[in-house]
């Protein structure tokens, strides 16, 4: 017995001596990991309770979910998300790729141009949304500007048009984040093996064919990454809509994140809000899980090669 105690003492002593070290490692990591896990479970739990203004115990099963899914707000928000998400992702991808290819042509002032296309990423969506709301406002924005030039019949009133308002959000979002795709694509273009390009040129490929057949095919892993990140952004969009349309006109530009906020803090229906948040998370997982699986397969293949 005494022998084991003696053998154990240095270990215990070591633990105490290394306490500050353990605290600095574990405390932040546990706080970060702990809040992610517990907050997710917490919200999940609330989504199954009849909570209104305050969290309540009790179990209502999927009632909150069916209720949320039945509301007009959620249906509009989700339809908007599908339209906004796909339009935004496609347009910002194409814009980003186009910009990257243009900037890849050894042009003068590349750094300045790159800074110009990326600066919106440094600014708050609240700021850019506000500015776009002015520009797109028919009373003071582009429409008025063109009207003042004498073209009185010119109309550009998407912001107050129920059917077109969602496109103003697409526009602002593409403007704001196309630079992100550009930065990633440009990095990808720059990392294409120059021997590959030389070989293609010796084979007689012109610039168009060079891009289409040789360079762009190497970019598709980056494309997937860009699509996933942009989708993630689209699904959680909140600030931009709040600043640009406020969800209007009426509720024409609602998105899921606004519905969650509305349920939780404006109507005081925490259970519904939590259910809507979980639905958002599920939408996100529908994008992220296939992506994670794809990354896993890629890593496996890379390891085997």
């Amino acid at each position: 017995m005494s022998e084991t105690a003696a053998a154990r003492r240095p270990k215990v002593f070591g633990l105490v001596r290394r306490l500050p070290e353990h605290l600095t490692i574990w405390l932040p990591l546990l706080l970060a990991a702990g809040h992610i896990v517990s907050f997710s479970l917490w919200t999940l739990w609330v989504s199954f309770t009849p909570s209104t203004l305050l969290p309540e115990f009790g179990w209502v099963g999927l009632h909150n979910y069916t209720a949320v899914l039945a509301t007009r707000n959620w249906r509009i928000a989700f339809d908007n998300l599908l339209l906004f998400g796909s339009a935004f992702v496609v347009l910002s991808l194409l814009t980003g790729l186009g910009l990257a290819i243009l900037l890849d042509q050894r042009i003068r002032g590349e750094n300045v141009l790159r800074s110009i296309f990326l600066y919106p990423m440094a600014v708050s969506f609240v700021v850019t949304g506000t500015v776009w709301s002015w520009l797109l406002n028919p009373g003071v924005g582009v429409q008025k500007f063109v009207n003042d030039f004498g073209w009185m019949s010119f109309r550009f009133d998407w912001l107050i048009n129920r059917d077109m308002a969602i496109w103003t959000i697409v526009m602002a979002a593409v403007w704001q984040s196309a630079g992100f795709g550009m930065a990633l694509f440009l990095a990808g273009l720059r990392s294409v093996d120059t021997d590959l390009i030389k070989a293609a040129q010796i084979d007689g490929a012109g610039p168009f064919r060079l891009y289409r057949r040789v360079i762009l095919p190497t970019l598709w892993p980056i494309t997937v990454t860009v699509v996933v990140i942009q989708l993630q952004f689209a699904i959680t969009t909140f600030d931009l809509v709040r600043a640009l349309t406020g969800g209007g006109p009426g509720i024409a530009t609602l998105l899921p994140a606004l519905v969650v906020y509305d349920f939780m803090f404006q109507r005081g229906l925490l259970g519904r809000g939590a259910a809507a948040a979980v639905l958002m998370l599920l939408t996100l997982l529908a994008v992220l899980l296939p992506y994670a699986a794809w990354r896993h397969v890629q890593a496996r293949q890379a390891a085997r090669a």
Partner: peptide
């Protein structure tokens, strides 16, 4: 993890 999942907690 979207912020909406953490708002309530």
């Amino acid at each position: 993890l979207p912020q909406q999942m953490r708002l309530l907690p």
